[in-house]
Structures are given as C-alpha cells and as structure tokens.
Write a protein that binds this DNA or RNA. Structure first.
Length: 467
RNA sequence: GUCCCGUUCAUCUAGAGGCCUAGGAUCCCAGCCUUUCACGCUGGUUACAGGGGUUCGACUCCCCUACGGGACGCCA
C-alpha cells in the first residue's frame, strides 16, 4: 500500500510552531515515500472551532509551502458517516447507551482520586437498559482483559493494559461524535498508512486501536513526535511570544529559515545543519527522530534565518523588504534600489525586520547626531575635510561607486590626512553611526542629493556644538 | 494520585558495547580581517541525572531512584 499521511489540526487557534513541525514531518514522510499528504480539519468541537482559525491554519500551511494532495476535509461534514459507524458498533454490541449524570461521574472521579486510583468510568451502564428516548451518550465498550501493544515508529514498543482504559464516550448527548471516534473513522476511510502526531496523543492510541479492531479495520502505523518546549524549557504557550507561524512571517523570518529550524528540532541527519527542501525530503527518516522533547531556541533560528537571507536572491527579497519598510512608514518604490540595499546590508541582519531597521537611514536623514560614534567623529577638526569632500562630491560627473571612491581618495591625498580622518566623519554625517557597508557604496545608495544635504547638516551640527 | 513517555554542553543534537581523554551547530569569549558595524576565518570554555547490575569493556543493554513532560473531558 502506498504511503499516505495527514495533518489534522483542530481549528481552535492559529498554526503554532509545534503544529507546524508535526505538519512538516508528516509532509516530509509522504513526500519522501512518494505518497500522499492529506489535510483534515478536526472541527467537531462546535464550541471552540472558528473559521478564523481555519483560515489562519491554511495561511500558515501556504506560507510554509506544505502542499497537500487531498483536503482540506472537514469533520463537521462527515457526521453521517460517524453516526453510521457508531450505530454499527452498537449493533455489534461494541458500544452502548449510557445515561450517567454529570454529578455521578464527578463523584466517581473524586472518589477514585481520593483512593489514589486513576479516574475512569466504572462501566455502570454497560448492562443497564437505557432507552434511546431518554438523554444519553454512547460509550465504546473497551475490552477488559489483555493489553494493547503497538510499535511506535518513534518511541518503540508501547504496551498498555486494557484495565487502564475505560469506556470512552464516542457520541455526546447532543448527538455529535467525539474525537477518538472521528479520528479512527477518518484515518481508516482516508486510508492513512502512518499516523504522525504529537505525543500528547500516545495515551489515546491504545483505545483507538481497540476501536479499529472492534470495526475489523486494519490498524495504521503510529509515530508520536515529542513536544516542543518554549525558550525557558516550559511548555510552549502564548507567553513565549511568537508562537504563531504567521507571527514569524511578520517578524521577518523566511519560510526556508523556519522550516530548516523546525526540521532540526527533534530530527537530525548526522552533523548536518543546513537542509534545502529537497534535501529534507530525501534524507528524512522517522527513525532519526528524537524521543525526547526539545526546547525552541530563537537564537539558532536567527542564525538560520540570517543564512537564508544571505543565500536568497536580492530580487526575491526586495518586495518583502518593501513591506517591512512600510511598517516604518518608509515608502520605497524602486525594487531595483531595494535589491541593491538588500545586497549591501543583508549580512548585518538576521530578520527582514532588522534589515529594514538598519537600512532606514538610506531613506531618512539622521535626526541630529547623538550616537556615540558621532560624538567621536563629528568634531571641529572634521569640518575642513568634510567641506572639501562635499565640494568635490558635488562636482562629480557620475554618481557611481567607483568615482565616489576615487573622489574620497583624492580628497584624502590633497588634504594629506589619514583615510579615516575623512571617511569616518563622512560616514557618520550620512548615517549617524548606523552600521553601513563600504563608504562609496553607502554614499552611492543614499544618493547625491541626500549625501550633500547630510554633510551640510553635520557641519552645522559641529559648529553649533563646538561653540 | 494512577498510567504512559522521556533524561548527552546554556540550547539543538551526533553517538546503535570498544572508533569517545564524547563530535558538530547555536550562544558566549579571545584573536585575525577591517574606514564603522557586520560577515568570514582561527581558537577556547561547557555535557553522558544519580545508584546498582550485565560485560574483559558501557554514553550505549537491564533494574531502581530522582527529575521533567504528557494523559486521565459529553477538548482535540
């Protein structure tokens, strides 16, 4: 049978990095084996599922470019099918009606906890004759003897005794099916061969296997991925800031960077750190997935993202940078110029937000010269070199890198001073100390008009501060 | 509390009994490069949770303890 995996999020929030990694591994497994990848929205919790969440998940998947061959399927559209299966289970005597009240269940739980036992349903209604007319739920009749064994593709052999399991509810009082039932029906109907999901589902697996067997269905393979912890080692939550995949997009990360980071979180291929999409697919193996949870480390993500910013083609980054400039109220319309800025600045930034930040000076004149380097460079003895250079630059025939460089070199020679004596004040005049590339390139990109204006401003600044 | 899963540098990880006086990457520190800041390069600090076994030999296998996580819902 050919491989088929799925990603099955519940739309009760955005796509966070943990979900994204689960999706990635499922997708990778399918692609690696030339199989199919299915997206299924598990929205049976009518209370908490929202269309916004569905949209957010779809948007995240698209941004990461995790394409699916089937779906998205919605469980709310398959209620007829679930009910059909539930009815079959009742007919087979593998499920039964239960009318236990909430109060009874709560009391039972309390008693069991007090007796230091695992809280579980006691099977009270197993043999009670509950009428179909009175309010009731349907419970799955779990075997009482023996144990369930399965070989997890990540964790290895797992065995759970059936007396640890209770008769779980598969249909609510309102007639809607519950997760453990729907997931089994769907994974069977959709012919999923490997169920790859977070290890918070490990405990559900034995009961699901019992349901497969009750229906006489073949059981898929399971692979349970360890959780991703936050920067501080605690469970990932909103407290840790950017947990939504799209928030990473907003913060200037590239999908390549996030994906590469995520794939190395819990999975490895020897000492290799950098993986292209193709390499991931080719090299991915479930056997190399770590069994222990891992902590999300933003610094390493930053390093990877910086790498991909350096690797990308400037033309591709230009429109992205443009968007981030807009966040700074900078309207940069010329994509060719933007591409040049990318090329000049990118080794200094690990995100596009940072790139826009440190590149703002190309468009905005310095607001005063309060930086530390400015205090050092913009002193009285800089006035003469600046004035000289300003004049020369104003007269330059062509505003290109090479002539600018020559012009500065000539000025230095004419003044008989060290290169830095002119270069530093000049650079600071234009940037107020913001990190910047080679001087000629910096001046070139800032443009002649702005360069001259900023030199004038700097000279005025020195004069005012010297007196 | 009960059950399940886990535990190698601060972090991500390599390691499938001798190759390990434990390797790589991020971070941090130092040096080099340099007209700023970076990039890059070179070097450095730091780890097998603890205790018992098994074995000629254990990071690797088994057991116990500790610690961490997960599950125990008419949530998924």
């Amino acid at each position: 049978m050919s491989v088929k995996t799925r990603f099955a999020p519940s739309p009760t929030g955005y796509l966070h990095v943990g979900g994204a990694r689960t999706a990635l591994f499922s997708w990778l497994y399918a692609r690696k084996h030339g199989g199919q990848f299915v997206l299924r929205i598990e929205d049976t919790d009518l209370e908490r599922s929202t269309q916004e969440s569905v949209d957010a998940i779809l948007e995240g998947m698209q941004w990461l470019d995790l394409d699916y061959d089937e779906g998205p399927f919605y469980q709310t559209k398959r209620f007829d099918r679930y009910n059909e299966v539930i009815d079959q289970l009742i007919e087979k005597g593998m499920a039964y009606r239960c009318s236990c009240s909430k109060e009874r269940l709560d009391n039972l739980r309390e008693e069991q906890m007090a007796a230091k036992q695992k809280p579980r349903y006691d099977g009270h209604c197993r043999h009670a004759d509950v009428s179909a007319d009175e309010p009731h739920v349907i419970r799955f009749l779990n075997p009482t003897e023996g144990s369930v064994k399965f070989k997890d593709l990540v964790k290895g052999d797992i065995e759970v005794s059936n007396n640890e399991l209770d008769d779980l509810i598969i249909r609510r009082t309102d007639g809607s099916p519950t997760y453990n039932l729907t997931v089994v029906v769907d994974d069977h109907d959709m012919e999923i061969t490997q169920v790859i999901r977070g290890d918070d589902h490990i405990n559900n697996t034995p009961r699901q296997i019992n349901m497969y067997q009750a229906m006489g269905w073949s059981v898929p393979e399971f692979a349970h991925l360890p959780m991703i912890l936050g920067d501080d080692g605690a469970r990932l939550s909103k407290r840790h800031g950017a947990v939504s995949v799209m928030q990473y997009a907003d913060e200037g990360y590239l999908p390549e960077g996030l994906l590469n980071y995520l794939v190395r979180l819990g999975w490895s291929h020897g000492d290799q750190e950098l993986f292209s999409r193709e390499e991931m697919i080719q090299l991915f193996e479930l056997t190399n997935v770590n069994r222990a949870p891992s902590a999300f480390n933003t610094e390493k993500l930053n390093w990877l993202n910086a790498h991909y910013i350096k690797e990308a083609s400037p033309a591709d980054l230009a429109p992205l940078l443009q968007k981030h400039f807009q966040q700074l109220d900078i309207e940069a319309t010329d994509l060719a110029v933007l591409a040049q800025i990318v090329e000049a600045q990118r080794e200094r930034a690990s995100t596009l937000v940072e790139l826009a930040d440190i590149s703002a000076f190309y468009f905005n004149d310095p607001e005063g010269y309060s930086s530390k380097p400015a205090k050092k460079a913009l002193v009285e003895e800089a006035i003469a070199p600046l004035t000289h250079a300003r004049k020369a630059l104003a007269q330059l025939a062509a505003w290109e890198r090479e002539p600018i460089h020559q012009c500065v070199a000539d000025a230095v020679a004419a003044l008989e001073i060290g290169f830095g004596k002119l270069a530093m004040p000049l650079r600071i005049s234009v940037t107020d100390g913001a990190p910047s590339p080679d001087l000629d390139l910096t001046l070139f990109l800032v443009g002649r008009e702005a360069t001259l204006r900023r030199i004038d401003n700097a000279i005025v600044f020195i004069q005012e501060n010297a007196s």
